[in-house]
């Protein structure tokens, strides 16, 4: 470290290590890599989302999505510099084509976003005119929807707490079994999802897909029904992708 750790460093360390205090060095390294990978995916998703919002004429959302990735970028630069690592020097050491290619990709993405925003401001209309019009008719229906939203959020909190408790319980039981094992097991270095996990994923995908089509099937052909149906389709496709990938990984692990 380049200087004595202060309260900011301790706070950063606490934020960084939440959840991996009990990990050993390999688990910690993999966990940090996973976090970095997740962060990169988030940055990419934000900038692609900004382009989509800009094309649809959503100026505030596009600006917010462009600016949000600045926070993790600045935070990582600050953290590295506090520990005596110059991120720019690392960038300079990487192959030039790789660095330039990466910069070019993000610059083009940003330029397209700015161009779409400029078009929206200059001509007053977005490149793609898309209106999401949701109309709730009647005070009673509005009250019921508000109540359902509140109840849904409360149930969601309970379900997520229950899910987390089950995950912790299952993992602790697995670790206890592993610690008392009398024989070697070379195949459990990777996480192989069990059949039950995969069945749960498949069930979630099917339920989401079907539930998302309900407004559309019940006669709604407006933007809301289409967005819900498409969103459900994309979410279900993502879950099916994870289910399929988990199956392949499991099969590889058994070989």
């Amino acid at each position: 470290m380049s200087q004595r750790p202060g309260s900011m460093d301790h706070a950063a360390e606490r934020l960084l290590l939440s959840g991996v205090e009990q990990a050993d060095e390999r688990e910690r390294a993999v966990s940090m890599e996973a976090e970095a990978f997740g962060m990169q995916c988030t940055v990419l998703a934000c900038w692609v989302g900004a382009l989509v919002c800009a094309v649809l004429g959503q100026i505030t959302a596009a600006a917010a999505l462009v600016l949000v990735p600045v926070i993790p970028g600045c935070a990582s630069l600050w953290y590295a510099s506090r520990r005596g690592v110059n991120s720019y020097a690392l960038l300079a050491r990487a192959p030039l084509t790789q660095t330039l290619g990466r910069s070019l990709f993000f610059s083009v993405l940003l330029a397209l976003t700015v161009a779409a925003l400029v078009y929206r401001v200059y001509y007053g209309v977005p490149l793609v005119d898309f209106h999401l019009h949701v109309e709730v008719v009647g005070e009673d229906l509005r009250r019921v929807m508000a109540l359902l939203a509140v109840l849904g959020a409360a149930v969601g909190v309970l379900v997520s707490m229950l899910w987390l408790s089950i995950v912790v319980w299952v993992q602790r039981a697995a670790e206890r079994r592993g610690a008392t094992k009398d024989e070697d097991d070379d195949d459990d270095v990777d996480w192989h999802p069990t059949g039950r996990w995969r069945t749960g994923l498949l069930a979630c995908a099917v339920v989401t897909l079907l539930a998302a089509q309900v407004p559309w099937i019940l006669g709604g052909r407006d933007g809301f029904a289409v967005v819900v149906a498409l969103g459900g389709l994309i979410y279900a496709a993502a879950l099916l992708g994870i289910w399929w990938a988990a199956g392949r990984r499991r099969a590889r692990g058994r070989r």
């Binding site: 688990e27 610690a179 009398d182 459990d188």
Partner: peptide, 23 residues
């Protein structure tokens, strides 16, 4: 066993597995 060695050196058994596999 892998579990005993892992416990002795203070890592998870998966880390011993990864280490012995050269990963």
């Amino acid at each position: 066993t892998q579990a005993e060695l892992a416990q002795e050196v203070g890592v998870s058994r998966q880390t011993v597995v990864a280490l012995e596999r050269g990963d």
